[in-house]
């Protein structure tokens, strides 16, 4: 996939690269009289202001998608409820501000309990997922099952002859092999993030233009 050259695209790359380099340098370099940190703060403030406009785009997107669903009769009833709720909260938010009692009440007594209810289902989902993973299919899954069962048993507050050994084994599994694996993954992710950042600064990755 080869990119076509365009002046506009090059301007975007230069602006994005320059802003990126200034913000990055602000973290490392202090040059007297240049006040890089101040410039960095101003640029980050601008980014926040620009991002705020995305709220408008988001609201338009929610309306358009839900109207489309109503027209196509794909969960139209839920879409009507979504739009009605959005307009309801928006109306009170615009008239009384974000600290409006109705808006606060909606968040506290509708949104928060609904989110908590959804996450409370996690326990059942974890059991189903564990059931699928702990099936004996290969040597790896057998090992996973064995270690999983031993760790589960070690968490049970029962007194049996080798309970202390089992707790020691659990601690070792969590502190040594599991931690080593997790740190390996985190190291790789960090390198991946640095590479992605550098590609963005150099204009190789251009999510803002093609």
């Amino acid at each position: 996939m080869k990119r076509k050259f365009s002046i506009l695209s090059s301007i975007y790359v230069v602006i994005a690269g320059a802003v990126g380099v200034i913000v990055l340098l602000g973290f490392f370099v202090e040059i007297e009289g240049l006040h890089l940190q101040d410039i960095q703060t101003i640029l980050l403030d601008w980014a926040v202001t620009v991002a705020a406009f995305a709220f408008l785009l988001g609201a338009v997107n929610v309306v358009r998608v839900n109207l489309m669903r109503i027209r196509q009769r794909k969960g139209g009833l839920y879409s009507m409820v979504t739009l009605a709720a959005m307009l309801f909260v928006l109306a009170f938010g615009l008239t009384d501000g974000p600290h409006s009692l109705v808006v606060q009440w909606t968040f506290e007594w509708v949104l928060v309990p609904l989110q908590a209810t959804l996450f409370s289902l996690m326990a059942f989902f974890v059991v189903i997922a564990a059931w699928r993973v702990f099936r004996l299919r290969s040597l790896e899954s057998a090992l996973l099952l064995l270690v999983g069962v031993l760790i589960l048993v070690s968490q049970v507050p029962l007194k049996f002859p080798w309970a202390e050994d089992l707790t020691g084994f659990k601690n070792w599994i969590l502190a040594v092999p599991a931690m080593a694996g997790a740190r390996g993954i985190i190291l790789g992710v960090t390198l991946g993030i640095v590479t992605t950042g550098l590609r963005l600064l150099l204009g190789i990755d251009r999510p803002y233009s093609d």
Partner: peptide
């Protein structure tokens, strides 16, 4: 795609 693998898409 575990960890860094997801950054190798390009």
């Amino acid at each position: 795609l575990i960890g860094e693998e997801m950054f190798a898409g390009g």
